[in-house]
């Protein structure tokens, strides 16, 4: 009996917490007159499917494409640079490694909004702002790379050292042991961490807003911000935009939720 009371309580708390999400989908489905009804309705009386319309009129394809491009670039760059580094940090133990690890943990916490000023000036001086999406990829990679390294390191730590040594004795080179033994065994952790930094970069805002001047190169977050404008009242359209944008993120996340959580907590607390 007590268990079911707890279940009902739990459901109620989850429902309250997720209400903003419900409200987003609900508003997206309501008609533009219904959203301004007072008192508001909690179930659409006249369901509207204006997803395609918003997609076209707000040119979402282009924004989403730019976001995807940036997120993909960041993920490729961060995994390429970070995986090997995470592996070394999990294997070698000495003072220099400790210092490197500490420095990486420190860089993990630098806020984008504070780093963007020097990065903007620096990129401007070396002419990188001429290709602004690449500039955002470079800046965002520097932001997520430390997190990627810390989380991946936790995965590599779990692979027993003897497996690598057995491969060396079996006649493998260091490179061979890394690619044939370590990478396959750390694959799950690497994948989950990559998805995590992909999702984070897919929702990046500060660097895109500050480094990209041209509207046609902008990302989905900036597109949403422009849509909201100072005197926005097409809330129906805005919530439709938001729903289109976050639904894929939520689906991917829900599929990988358990793994992301275990990877994340391992990295944050160890």
């Amino acid at each position: 009996m007590k268990r079911y009371v707890l279940l009902i309580l739990g459901l109620a708390m989850t429902a309250i917490y997720l209400f903003p999400l419900y409200w987003m989908y609900l508003t997206a489905l309501k008609s533009s007159t219904e959203i301004f009804q007072y008192p508001p309705t909690f179930w659409p009386s006249d369901t509207q499917w204006n997803f395609l319309e918003v997609w076209k009129s707000r040119d979402m394809g282009r924004y989403i494409w730019n976001s995807l491009l940036i997120a993909t670039g960041v993920t490729i760059l961060a995994t390429t640079l970070g995986t090997g580094c995470a592996y070394v940090l999990s294997r070698v133990r000495n003072v220099w490694i400790e210092i490197a690890l500490f420095a990486i943990l420190m860089m993990q916490v630098l806020p984008s909004s504070l780093m963007v000023t020097p990065i903007f000036v620096m990129f401007n001086q070396i002419g990188l702002l001429a290709s602004p999406r690449i500039a955002v990829i470079l800046a965002q990679t520097a932001k997520v790379l430390p997190l990627y390294i810390v989380l991946c390191r936790a995965t590599f730590v779990q692979v027993p050292r003897e497996l690598e040594e057995a491969a060396l004795v079996d006649g493998s080179s260091r490179i061979g042991a890394f690619f044939h033994i370590m990478l396959p065994l750390a694959r799950n952790g690497i994948l989950v961490t990559s998805v995590l930094i992909f999702l984070q970069s897919f929702g990046e805002y500060v660097y895109a807003r500050s480094l990209i001047a041209k509207n046609e190169l902008q990302t989905a977050t900036v597109g949403l911000q422009t849509f909201m404008g100072p005197n926005a009242n097409d809330w129906n359209g805005i919530m439709t935009y938001a729903a289109i944008y976050v639904t894929p993120i939520l689906i991917v996340f829900m599929l990988l939720q358990r793994r992301i959580v275990s990877g994340l907590t391992a990295g944050a607390l160890k």
């Binding site: 805002y205 977050t221 996340f253």
Partner: peptide, 11 residues
């Protein structure tokens, strides 16, 4: 609950 955490803060 984690849905709230993974969503882009701007959204």
């Amino acid at each position: 609950f984690l849905a709230g955490w993974i969503m882009p803060a701007l959204v």
